[in-house]
Design a protein around this nucleic acid. Structure first.
Lengths: 249, 249
DNA sequence: AAAAAACACGCAAAAAACTGCAATTTTGTT
DNA sequence: AACAAAATTGCAGTTTTTTGCGTGTTTTTT
C-alpha cells in the first residue's frame, strides 16, 4: 500500500471520528506501529492532525459546542438556501422539516416575511421564535435526539388535519429512480406525511447526496415538485430529474 | 479511551453545567479518581477550568457579569435548580414546563440520569437532545414565541393520555391564598393540565414572585406539593406555605 | 471531635514513543 | 540495463507517558 493511500485513509478516519488510535490504524493498514507513527507525524507536521499519546485527533480543537455551527458544506448549504428563499411568499402556510440545510433556509427568512410555519425540528423552532412575522406551530411527539426532530403517531395525527402550501423536506438521499429515502422508519413515515399534505414539495439537497440511497423510502420522485441544489440547473447530474418533470433550481 | 477524548468530554461537561464533580467524571469516563484529578489539573494548568475541592468549575472567558445580565437573577435560579435536583430520580417520568429556572434545572441534570422527560419548552428540548440518558418527548402545538413553549388543544390532548411522577411547573406568580397564576389564558390551561396528570407538582420560584398575582389562575395552592426558592426553608416569607402543608425546600 | 471524602505523593506495570540500524523498495542518472 | 542515492519499512533496545494502587495528609461534613 502506498504511503499516500494510507494518509488518505487516516484522514478519512480522523475526520469521521475526530480521533484515531495508532493501534487501530496499525491493524487496519497492516503496517507496523512505527510506520503509523511516522505517518501521523507527517500529517501532524502538515498541521492536518494533532498527534497525541496513543493516536491523533482532528486539528479542530474547537470544543464540541461549536461543532454544531461547523456544519458540513456550510457554503453549499447557504447557497442552496438562498436559491430556495425565492420559493417562499407572504401569507403562505409552510412546513419545514429538520436538517441543517433547512435550518439555513429559516435563518435567511427576511424580517418582513409574514407566514405560518409548521415544523418538527427543535432548532428551527428555536430560531423562528425570534422572528416577528412568523406564526409558529410545533409538531410534538417522541424526539429523535440526534436529528432533533419529533416523530411518531402524534405528528402524523397533527398532520392529518393540515394543508400546507409548500413543504421543505429534509433530504438524506435523493435518487432519480427511487426518490427520497432516509435512515429511520419513523422519520420516513413523518416525511411522507409532510409531503402528502402539501401542495408543493421541495427538497433542498447538496449534490453529494444525489444518487445515494437509504433503507427507508420516503416518497417517489413523482411527488417531489422542486429540487434545489448548489449546482447550476443545467448540470448533467440533474438531467435525470429534469427529464422526469421535476423543477430544478 | 484517549486522554484527549477525556479532556474533550470534560470540557463539554463543564461548559454545559458550569461545573463538574470528579466522582461523576470518574463514573462517566470509567477511569480512576486519580486520573480524573490529573486530567483536571492539566486543564486547570492550561487555564481552561478552575479546580476546586470535589471537581472543577468553568473558567469562563466571558466575564461573570455579562452572564448575570442575560438571565435575571441567574445566581438565585441556579441555587434553586440545585436544590430541586434532589427531587429527580432515575427511572422517573418527568414533566418540565418552560421558564428560565426550569432551564437551569435541566442544565444541571447529571450525565448519569436515566429518565423520561416530557416538555413543551423548545430550549429545554434542545438542551436535553444532547443528554444521553433522557428519553425525550415534546408537546406540540401553537408556539408562544416569547416564552418559547407550545400551547393549545394539542398539548392538552397529548397530556390527557399521560401520567407523570413529577412535574416542574413554570411559575410567574405564587400567592399563598390564590396559588399559581400567569399572564396568558392558553398558558394557564396547559399548566393546569400538566399539574393534573402529575403525582407530585413542584414550583421553582424566585422569592420576588412570591405574593404577586396575574390575571389567569393556574392551580390552587392545594395542588402544589413542593415549592423551591432561593431562601432557606425557615424564612418568614415562606411561613404561610408551610402552614398550608406545602413542602418547602 | 470524629468520620468521610477528597487530595497528594511515590511506585510499578503496561503501553506507547523514540532512537539507531539494517533490509528492502523506489527513484534518478548514466 | 546498471548502478548509486534516496526513501520507506520493520526490528530491537531504551526512554517516556500513562494509569491505577497504596499510603498518608488535608479538607469537608456531621
Amino acid at each position: 500500500m502506498l504511503k499516500e493511500e494510507r494518509h488518505q485513509l487516516i484522514l478519512e478516519e480522523v475526520t469521521r471520528h475526530n480521533k484515531v488510535r495508532s493501534a487501530e490504524l496499525c491493524r487496519m493498514l497492516k503496517v507496523s506501529e512505527d510506520t503509523v507513527r511516522r505517518d501521523l507525524k507527517e500529517l501532524a507536521d502538515q498541521g492536518i492532525v494533532r498527534k497525541v499519546h496513543g493516536g491523533a485527533v482532528a486539528n479542530s480543537l474547537i470544543p464540541q459546542e461549536y461543532r454544531e455551527h461547523t456544519i458540513d458544506h456550510i457554503g453549499q448549504k447557504r447557497a442552496i438556501a438562498e436559491k430556495a428563499l425565492s420559493l417562499v411568499q407572504d401569507g403562505q402556510v409552510i412546513i419545514i422539516d429538520g436538517g441543517t440545510t433547512n435550518f439555513e433556509l429559516v435563518r435567511l427568512f427576511p424580517e418582513s416575511l409574514q407566514a405560518t410555519v409548521f415544523t418538527n425540528s427543535i432548532p428551527i423552532a428555536g430560531e423562528l421564535c425570534s422572528h416577528h412575522g412568523i406564526e409558529l406551530f410545533l409538531f410534538g411527539g417522541k424526539v429523535l435526539k440526534n436529528a432533533r426532530v419529533a416523530v411518531g403517531m402524534d405528528v402524523l395525527h397533527f398532520l392529518s388535519e393540515l394543508y400546507a402550501d409548500i413543504c421543505f423536506i429534509g433530504t438524506r438521499s435523493l435518487h432519480a429512480g427511487l426518490g427520497i429515502s432516509t435512515t429511520r422508519r419513523e422519520e420516513a413515515q413523518v416525511k411522507r406525511k409532510l409531503a402528502e399534505v402539501s401542495a408543493q414539495v421541495v427538497a433542498l439537497v447538496t449534490s453529494d447526496k444525489i444518487g445515494t440511497l437509504q433503507p427507508f423510502r420516503v416518497v417517489e420522485l413523482e411527488q417531489v415538485h422542486t429540487i434545489v441544489t448548489e449546482l447550476p440547473p443545467g448540470d448533467p447530474m440533474l438531467k435525470p430529474f429534469l427529464d422526469r418533470g421535476v423543477e430544478v433550481l
